[in-house]
Each structure stands twice: as C-alpha cells, then as structure tokens.
Design a protein around this nucleic acid. Structure first.
Lengths: 281, 281
DNA sequence: TAATGTGAAGGAATTCACAGCC
DNA sequence: GGCTGTGAATTCCTTCACATTA
C-alpha cells in the first residue's frame, strides 16, 4: 500500500527547532489527509509555504545581513534592512515572517540569528556541488569564480565535447568529456547543473543532466528547456534582459514625446511626432 | 510653463500603424489630464500598458518566432507557440493581445508579422549601444559575445581601472579608463551600461554611469544598487539563482521525508526524522 | 515607546471559459 | 470546426494599518 500527501493538508513538526513547522497552503477545507493512489490531483504536490518571490528576496537579505555581520552590526530594524535591500519594510517583515518569528518588538532583528535562519531555510547548511557544462567564454568565467558565488556551491565537475579541452584544468578542475556526465555527476554528488553551451546543444545537455539525476539546472543558453516536472530550471538570459532594458528605453522615448506633445498641445504649436493626444474624461 | 502627464490619463495615437494605441492603466476616474508642476504624484509617471512580466515573455516569444521564421514556418497557433515557449496558451494569447490583434481566428498567427510587431514594441528597431564596465573574467566573456546576444546591442565601449588594460582591445574594442566614462559614453551614444566589476566598486560605477546619462543598467555585481527613479536596473545575480535552486533541493528533501513519514505513520512503524505528523481537520 | 508580526485590503498576474470570427 | 481575443474568476503578491509585545 502506498500513499501520497495532498496539497494543503500535511503539517509536519520537525525535530529540534521549537515550533518550527513546514506548512502548506492555508486551509483545504474538507480535505482528507492521506489518499490512496488513484484520486491524485493533476498537479504534483507542492509545499508552498514560502512564495517563490520571497525566496529570491531572502537570498538578497542574506547577503546584506552577511555584510552587516562582518561589520559587527548585531541588530537591525526592518526599516534599515529594507532600505539596504531595496524593498519596502512591510514586504521585508512579511518575507521574514514566512521563516518564523525571530525579531524582537521594539528592538529589531539579531543579525546572526537571521543569517542562520535564512541559511537554514535556503538549504545552505548543506553543500551543493555544481557541474558546469560548456567550457567556452562563459564556462571559463564561471569555473574561475572558484567555489562559485558565495561558498557552499563548489564547482565539482566541468564538461565539454572539445577533445583539446579534455583533462585541461580550469579553475583547478580538469574538464571531462560530456559522455562521462552520468558517472562523474554521480561520483561527485553533483546536485546543480549549469548549462553554458551554445544554444543548439543545450536541450541535449539538459536531457543528459536529467538522466544523470541532476534535478536543478541553471541555464545560460538562450533556449527554452523542456524538462520533467520534478526538475527545477532557472534561466539567466542576457538577450532577454537586454531586450527588457530596450523596452524601457523605448517607453521612455514614447513618454518623452507624449509629454512634449502635451506641452505643444497646450501651447497651441501643433503635434510633433504624434498624430493626436486623446484625453479621457 | 512646463507640464507633465499624469498616470492613467494620457492616450496617444501614434503615427502610422492603424489603431495602435499607447494606453495607460484602465481608468483614472476624475483625473485631470495635464497638471502644472507642483501637484506631482509620489511615484513618477509610468505608462503601464504592458505588464513587466509580459515584456520578459515577449522577448522569449520573439526568439522562438525568429527560430521558426528561419525554418520557413509562416504560421503558428497559440497552442504550438506556447509549448515552444514553455508557457500556457491563454497566457501567451493574453501577452500578445497587449501588443495588438495580429492573429487570425481559426488559423493562428503569421510568424513574420509577430516578429516585427514584437520587435517594434521592444524597441529593437533602434540600436542600443552597450558599455561594459569591469573587464575581468565576466567582462571579457561579455565583450567577446561580440555584438552581444542577438544583434541590436553592439558593445561600443569597455571600461576598467587597471592601467595594464588601457587600450588593449577585447572583442575588438579597446578598453578605456573609467575616468573617461562620461565623455566616451556621450560620444558613442551608450544607452545601456553593464556592470561587471567586483562588488565594492559597483555602486560607484553605477553612480558614474548615471551621471554620464545612462538610464538603463544591467548589474552582474552582487550588490543592491541605489539609483534615481528614472534609471532602470536589471540584475543578474548568480548567488541568488544558486540559492533559489538550493532552496528547491531542500524543499524536495523535506517533501520526501514528509511523504515517507506519512507512509510510516500509516504503516504504524513510527516516525523517522520527524517528530509528529499533524493532520488538519 | 518603538518596532515586530499579521489580518485584511488592494493590486497584479494568471487562468478559465466562451463569444466572436475565419 | 478551429482558434483568437478577452471579460470574469481566480490565484498570487504587495501594501496597509494596527494590535501586540518587549
């Protein structure tokens, strides 16, 4: 007999750490806690205690807090921290409330406490070995970050197809052939794969990472990867970022000309670059 | 006499392109269209016709569509395109509806039409010169992308402080000293600045870019930049990306143990790694 | 008194579902 | 019949505002 756990239903009290709780979505009114296989919901179970957007910000808070800790700041208010992190203070407090109540009313938060709680939530207490696939310009740069941005993400393996690169150490790690991806990833316990290949190779590389058991992928290739539901993909897409900025440049220009047109209209000098300004009642 | 344009009030019919309209937020009930300076709202004017999230996806659709165009695909349905872009088809149609009605019911979209409409909206019909500041590992990689991901974003200037780098060409462009940032950016009409410096230098570099008149910044330094409201910053933060993936690894592990615990509980074998399973009524 | 933590309100983005058109 | 375009419903996220607590 096998069971699965339905959404919004299971609450697990973890060992240690006081009344710390893994919570799912708010209620689930008349739900039954454990179902037999057969009436599975369409989407696979997801414990959504912490909104995705909040997770990204927690990582930012962590960095700011680490900086403060190095400067021997011991306590900080939500207001100060929110300014340093570039968010509003209510949002910051709500984000922190997702991980528990570690502040002191009238005082603020203990920096060290927050650092370790956020690290715990983000799973930074374990090591996550990284494999970089595609040792071109970008792959080199990534491998040479050495230990990858902030400790805890050691680069454990490098892969490419270029025979000239095989065995060549980059950032201290010798490059392996991509055909060895399964064995090397297993052996070195890689949990995160980074794809830095040319676009045409990306999907195939992704497939091989997935069949090697890697469930988290950071994709630098400008390609939409198709993966099974249980694999998490984050992408870093320079072209998209540039194009978003381009959109804002264009929007700014449109606004400027709209404003100019409004001024012209008021001055009765006619339109310039615009055919008409329509004003809502 | 100067005027500015209030939010949700100005509608501008642009030259050419049929009934194409730059629209702001839905209503703004009793608002006046043109204000004199003095009663400015707190937040600076933003024409929000297209949600930010949709803009990012439009860039992705554009890439997929360009690929299709190269394969001489002339027509595509929202369903097919949405699969290729990794989104759901209703979202795709809604996103496309923000830019106009270019589809044909019962048929689909003309690939070339969509490509040019998206390019127009994203402002890709103009050239956007890019300056890269910080010619280390990453700066090199970026400069060597040569013309930057997808045409339309030529790298026009490189800056650093290292005397050994001055004048050295990287990706065909000689490196300038950062002290020349204002004059060089003006002369080469840089509209996008890319910060690839070490973290401690990032804010100062950002300030100099801003005073050089650059209003769009892509920041690779793991630092929260403080900028005026009229400057657009996008960040690419590897540490944050890795930590989000780490969070998912951790969540997966928690889920696995929770599910295991549920199974154990049902089997009456007691808890393993969990103190109690609390089931909501 | 000062600042957290959080219901509740508000807004934005997503998804549904179907009218309208080819 | 098939597919777009879009109001309406829903879900998710943000912000407000204040009761609560050290």
């Amino acid at each position: 007999m096998r069971f699965w756990v339905g959404e919004g239903e299971l609450h697990v009290v973890k060992r240690g750490e006081g009344d710390d709780v893994v919570t799912t979505t708010p209620a689930a009114p008349d739900a039954v806690a454990v179902h037999e296989l057969g009436d599975e919901p369409a989407v696979r179970e997801r414990a959504r205690a912490i909104p995705e957007a909040a997770v990204a910000r927690l990582a930012v808070y962590l960095r700011v807090l680490s900086g403060l800790a190095e400067q021997n700041v011991t306590t900080i208010s939500s207001e100060e921290l929110s300014v340093a992190a570039g968010v509003n203070s209510a949002k910051l407090r709500k984000d922190l409330s997702y991980i528990g109540s570690y502040g002191t009313r009238g005082v603020g938060y203990d920096v060290d406490v927050l650092v370790s709680e956020i690290e715990r939530i983000l799973g930074l207490t374990r090591k996550h070995s990284v494999a970089v696939v595609g040792i071109g310009n970008l792959g080199h740069a990534l491998a040479n970050y050495g230990g990858f941005p902030s400790r805890g993400f050691p680069v454990a393996a490098l892969f490419d197809v270029d025979p000239d690169l095989m065995g060549v150490p980059v950032g201290g790690i010798p490059v392996s052939h991509i055909d060895e991806i399964a064995s090397v990833c297993a052996e070195r316990e890689v949990s995160i794969g980074v794809i830095a290949t040319p676009p045409p190779a990306a999907q195939a590389v992704c497939d091989r990472l997935v069949s090697a058991g890697v469930q988290c992928i950071l994709n630098f290739a400008p390609v939409v990867l198709q993966v099974p539901d249980d694999v998490e993909v984050r992408k870093v897409d320079l072209a998209v970022e540039m194009q978003i900025l381009s959109f804002h440049v264009a929007r700014r220009a449109d606004l400027a000309s709209a404003e100019q047109a409004a001024v012209d209209a008021m001055n009765g000098t006619g339109m310039s670059g615009v055919d008409g300004v329509v004003i809502r009642p």
